[in-house]
Structure formats: C-alpha cells, structure tokens
Amino acid sequence: MKNIYTYGGHPARRNLTVADLQQAKAGGRKLTQVDAATTEEARMLAGIGVDVITIADLDIEAVRLGAPETFVTGSQTMVQYVTEDEALAAAIACAEKGADAIYTPRGLKTVERLAGEGLAVQGHLGLVPRLSTRVGGLRTIGRTAEEALQLLESFRRLEEAGAYACEIECVAVEALEMIRDHTGLVTYSIGSGSGGDVIFSFLVDIAGDVENPPRHAKAWGDVLSLRKAIRAEQEQAVTAFRAEVVAGTFPDTAHTVGMKPGEAERFREKLANWKSPHL
C-alpha cells in the first residue's frame, strides 16, 4: 500500500499509483481491471484483489465507500459532457471525491485539457463502439499492417496529448503486442488479447450475466440463469398472490390481527347508536 494525497487534498492509501502502473508495464507484470457501480460490487472486487476498478464518474462516492484503497478510474461517456470545460469540471469533481484517474473517449483536445490540470487521463483507441460507423461497423482494428501503423500513430498522438494510459478495444492481437513496446502508455486491453498491460473485462461478462455477450467475453459464472430463475420465482409468487386476492382467500386469519375477545361485539353495539357530528 502507498500513502498518497488525493486530488481533493485528502490523505489516503492506495494499492497502486500511476507510477506503479507504469513500472508494472516496464516489468511485464499483468494487472486486472473490472467495473463496479455499487458499494457492494466495489467491496467484492477489492476483497478479491482486482487491481483497478473502473466506474461511471457519478458513482465515485458509492464505489469509494466499498473500495477505499483500490486504484479507481472515473469514466466519462462520449455525450455526458459537451465542452472541454464541462469535462474538466466533472473530472475535477470526480478526482476530488477520490478517483485516481479519469477515462475519456473524447478527442485529443479533451485529453489535453484534463491532463493540463495534472489529472491522470486514460484515452480510448482501437474500436470505439460509438464511433464504429467511421470504421465500417463493429470490427477488429489493426488486422492489416497499414491499419496497425495508423493505430501506432494514434498512440503517439494520445501520448503527446498527455494521457498516461489508453483502453485498447478489439485490436488484432499481434498489433497490440508489437505496439505495446513502442509506447509509454499503459494499455488496458479489452478484446485485444494478452498484449495489454492491464486486462479489462466487464463484471456482467465475467459473471455470465448478459444475454448476448461479445465474442471477446468469457464467462466464469452463470448469473444470468440465476437471475432468470429469480424472475420466474417472482412471477410465480405474484401470480399466486393476485389469484388469492381475487378469490378472497388473502388476506386470511393467519396473516392478520383481530380485535381482543369481546371487543368486536362491543364496537358493533356502539356503532349501532353512533351518529356522526358532521351530519
């Protein structure tokens, strides 16, 4: 564990720092990254020993509560913040609450704006799903030498913009393996093979909790079947509940509390002689 100060000026401890990630890259040590959205998920990942947790930036407080000492990257979406100033303001707010790095899929100007304020910035190269129409749809990037060379140039520009790391999505295995040694960026591989410095997978994919997982996803569990079984049990229970209400058999005496002995009769007699003062 390393002692640090957060961007917000609070003393804290972390399993990793940016410098540690860069040293792990240099030493060939493979690390793991998984996403979390809740305190419970973050606590689970931290307890297992996942090296880096990636989150939606708005979930930072919940995740920090569950994983107070794990390196956390707060992620911004493509459309969440329009201008560089808006992205910077949100990044600073996220870092103030404990994020160690900020991920952005936006362009180099946004990366430069965030990095210029001392934030550790992670970009995105390879297949950027929301920009997939520009490359002919959802496909693997860098399967030809020419495209791999173009990708290497994108690495260079991203590094020059001030990023310390980059998510590399759906890049040809050999391309990333060769590019990795020609960039100082810490590479987070998802669907790009084991050539990345950090191997990233989503929790839903790992746990088998998605109906149609992408080709690069591997499931080590079958949470989806459990979730379907839970839903089926819920439907059976609600169906039975409704049927008994309609039939008049619920609520019954086993699930209600009556008046004390004799009190119902006394109340009935009082009602017979009662007149409302409002009539």
Rank of each mutant, 00 (worst) to 15 (best):
E177M: 11
R266P: 01
N212R: 01
G195C: 00
E169R: 00
T249P: 08
M259P: 05
V246A: 05
S276P: 08
A172N: 02
I230H: 13
A24T: 11
G9W: 14
I190K: 02
Y164R: 10
D181R: 15
Q122K: 13
A219Q: 00
L88V: 06
V128W: 14
R157S: 07
I179R: 06
L127Y: 08
L45Q: 10
A272L: 12
V135H: 03
V63K: 04
E167H: 01
G208T: 04
E174S: 02
V135A: 11
G191S: 04
A90H: 11
M44L: 07
D252A: 13
V79G: 00
A67V: 02
L125R: 06
T6R: 13
K275N: 02
E69C: 10
A175P: 11
H216W: 13
F267W: 09
H216R: 05
R130N: 06
C94T: 14
G8K: 09
G193M: 06
F155H: 08
A243V: 00
S194W: 06
A175V: 04
V173H: 14
G98N: 09
A95H: 13
E84V: 04
E244Q: 10
G27V: 05
L131S: 15
G248R: 14
V246K: 07
V204F: 15
T73A: 04
F155K: 02
A254I: 03
A254T: 14
S75C: 06
F267L: 10
P214T: 14
V121N: 11
E235N: 08
N3S: 12
E146M: 08
I92C: 00
E84W: 07
G49Q: 12
G116P: 04
L45P: 02
V52H: 03
A91G: 10
E160Y: 01
R29V: 00
G248F: 12
L127W: 14
V238S: 05
E147R: 04
G107A: 03
A24D: 13
F155P: 00
R43D: 14
L16T: 11
G262C: 10
V135C: 08
E159T: 01
R113T: 03
H10Q: 07
G27W: 04
M44V: 00
A87I: 01
L158E: 15
Q76L: 10
P68Q: 06
D209E: 14
A37S: 12
A145T: 14
R266K: 09
V238L: 00
